[in-house]
Amino acid sequence: MTGTGQALWRRVPLWGVDASLVALSLLDAWINLYGEASPFMWASAALGCAGLFLRRRLPLAAFLLTLPMLVFMDVAVAPMVALYTVAAHTRNRLLLAGCALLNAAASTLVWPMSDTLSGEDRTWTLIQFVYTLATAFAPVLFGQLVQARQDVARQLVEVEEAREHESALYAQTVLARERAQLAREMHDVVSHQVSLIAVQAGALQVAAKDPQTRDGARAIRTLSVNTLDELRHMVTLLRASGGRATELTPQPTLAELQQLIANSGIETTLAGELPPGISTTAQRTIYRTVQEALTNVRKHAPGARAEVRLWHDTQHFGVTITNTAPTRPSVPLPSAHHGLIGLRERAELLDGTLTAEPTRQGGFTIELRAPTHPS
């Protein structure tokens, strides 16, 4: 199918597709029943065809409604469509095999039942059953193929998102390394020089006899001390930055945590609370920990649910993020674990620790623990 054909097909509303399938099924039944049908046969045909309207919400029920019409007539459209829909919506192979057997059995039976079980027709009935069973597996395989295609498309999107995330993490790591180097230079060179200025100004203030000179030395010493305080603050910010290009803008705190969870695309619950008055750096660290944990859930555990629990006691506070086992298959993705490395570095700035380990139920948990009063 060409790109133009696919675009036109996608423009057809779902109700239009279902209505067309019902109309085609009715035509198939009318061809088989014309001239020799009883009211009960027509009722079975109408029930089976109308059941296709339920195939998207109740695929198994729609399939079961097509079975009576198979007993009385040699139809193909409605049962095949219903069987395909069941195969496209379930991963239970035993259920699909059972549906195929029911389809073949209903197609093979001849009403009245005594005709089917008569001695001269048993061999032909068995042959017809095997042939019908093989035919029934065609829509089952096609439905499974469509389901696998959807899984692959979803996994490709997840892979692309993971690659973008890895690229962002790499950029963060490079930027964090450059900022750490800049912080070292400021601490080792600039701070040292300013400290010498402060010391020399202090000495001049003590030794000078002229009041004007002492006032000038005092002003230089005061400005130098203030400059040192500003430099220490800037070095702390550079070392604590996570590496994003927007780190110098106002950073998220606990006030944005609920919005982060709402926009994560994961079924997540938030519980607990933190002690009042924790520092802005601690709030930012907790926010980044939750952000990275939910990103990992989305990347490595598709379909999983997550729980974010804030907690504190007399000596420590922290956050624990736990996710359940994935409900959909995931693609193994290459990872340099830069995210967890960055989280551990942030935890160390709070004199805390970060642990990350799998759970017994097949999920994963990440916990940040930091002292309430760091040393």
Rank of each mutant, 00 (worst) to 15 (best):
A138W: 09
T135F: 02
L133R: 06
Q128M: 14
W124C: 05
V146L: 02
A97L: 09
Q128T: 14
V146R: 08
Y84C: 09
N92W: 04
F137L: 12
T132D: 09
A104V: 08
T90A: 10
L96W: 01
G98P: 11
P79F: 05
D115H: 11
T108M: 01
W111G: 08
Y84D: 07
T123C: 08
T132G: 06
H89P: 01
D115E: 14
V140M: 03
C99D: 05
L141T: 09
P79I: 04
T125I: 12
L145T: 10
T132R: 11
T123P: 01
A136S: 11
V140Y: 05
T108L: 03
V140F: 03
L141V: 11
G143S: 09
L133V: 11
Q144K: 12
P79Y: 01
R122T: 13
W124L: 14
A134I: 12
V130I: 14
R93P: 10
P112S: 13
W111C: 10
A104W: 08
V86F: 02
P139A: 01
L96S: 07
Q144L: 14
A97V: 10
D115I: 13
A78W: 01
C99W: 01
V110W: 07
T85S: 15
L133K: 02
M113S: 15
V110T: 13
T108N: 00
L94Y: 05
S107R: 02
Y84N: 04
V110L: 11
M80Q: 01
N92R: 14
E120C: 06
